[in-house]
Design a protein around this nucleic acid. Structure first.
Lengths: 223, 223
DNA sequence: TGACAAAGTAGTAAAATGCTACTATTATAA
DNA sequence: TTATAATAGTAGCATTTTACTACTTTGTCA
């Protein structure tokens, strides 16, 4: 990389795009904004910022989230770097995409300073139809959706979409939404057993039998 | 991303680093080069190039490989993008790392035009000791090693380290090297059965019983 | 007090995995 | 020509995980 080259000083703009996911109404949703300038003025897009010279990509992603939602300290992971030569019609831009996961109850958002509006969009519905999205953002979203489904199986990523305390039925719904398939209750509970612990509390308020509240165990406390 | 920003025209250098893996002498090995200029002149490093303005990151990775080995058309996948502010002592550089996998028999290499020498290094041994490596290349290698072990389990990535035709004992060795653990022969064969098909040929030449040659089935032909 | 409906548990068949031990095949040496 | 070494390949069983059904429990609300 830092190898020399025929064009050693060639430089380009680098941006960060953020895919902020949450679960709402039993659906996986994603924060979109309406662009407030060219190109793609008025078109839905992912929130994003240029990386500043003194800023890591991750810090830039955090800044993008903060600008759009006011939130800090939410779970972030790098997705992929998109670098097609013509992905921006004006000039060469390379963009590092980050996925952010947040429980719905922590999430608030308004239009950013330079953004017309912001809203949550049903991801799977969005990927079905062919509404226009700015740049290559549709491809980025598709990549993220696949990654998310894949990582549910071998990481604890799904827990970032649940709150601090959660019920097992709710947790199961999150897993099912991400995976796109029904799971068996009994087996799901057996598999979760080693990862979670009871808080002692119950979630009443709904009709019918209340469910117990759990929290995610620390990695080290697992059997 | 293509959102406007307070520093909309801030730009930086973007490079690609390549982790070219192969299997040799029962070990996972990686192509390293000795740098031929500052910074880190004379220090081992990953091969890499600056991305040209009219070139995708993937094409740049292919070019880096071609320059060092003469090879084209080998398996490539993006690993991660590294962007610590001080990862290059001179100036801000963001680097996209790519993993390349190639069967040992396809691989030849010599020092590149601007490189002093090139050689294959035992990856796990390298990660044990603390020999100096240029930039954050040690961290990049560590990240790749983990990714590789992880992806063996749920993708066909390991097959890229075997040739077109391979024996099951050889294939099992590749899996074991990547995973870092012994596998049970009988179970391994059952699991591979759906992915592979016999070529009809045998690999003789060794002492003792020859083994059958297989090839990877096309995805669509699998049961 | 009882019905509703979801929370939570039991249990069993089938499939995958962990693990041991066997048989089959070939090259080489005697 | 035969015995032997050593790997290729298979059988088979115990254990664990997964698929799936059906039950019992517990609260709210009429």
């Amino acid at each position: 990389m830092e190898n020399q080259d025929l064009f050693p000083s060639a430089s380009m703009s680098v941006t960060v795009d953020v895919l902020l996911f949450t679960i709402e109404d039993g659906k996986l949703k994603l924060l979109l904004i309406r662009r407030g300038e060219e190109p793609f003025d008025g078109v839905p897009a992912l929130p994003g910022v240029f990386i500043r010279p003194d800023e890591t990509p991750e810090a830039a992603a955090e800044r993008a989230i903060r600008e759009e939602t006011g939130l800090t300290g939410i779970y972030l992971e790098q997705l992929y770097t998109f670098g097609a030569v013509d992905r921006d019609p004006r000039r060469r831009i390379i963009s590092i995409a980050y996925m952010a996961l947040v429980p719905r109850e922590r999430l608030t958002f308004t239009a950013g300073v330079r953004t017309r509006e912001a809203w949550l969009e049903d991801v799977d519905a969005l990927l079905q139809d062919d509404r226009p999205l700015a740049f290559d953002h549709r491809e980025i979203i598709r990549t993220a959706r696949i990654r998310l489904a894949g990582k549910v199986e071998y990481t604890d990523i799904a827990f970032h979409l649940a709150g601090e305390k959660f019920t097992l039925p709710d947790l199961q719904r999150i897993f099912e939404i991400l995976l796109g398939e029904k799971l068996y209750k009994a087996n799901f509970r057996k598999k979760m057993a080693e990862k979670i612990e009871e808080t002692g509390g119950m979630l009443s308020g709904g009709p019918y039998r209340p469910s117990k509240l759990y929290r995610l165990k620390k990695e080290k406390d697992r059997s």
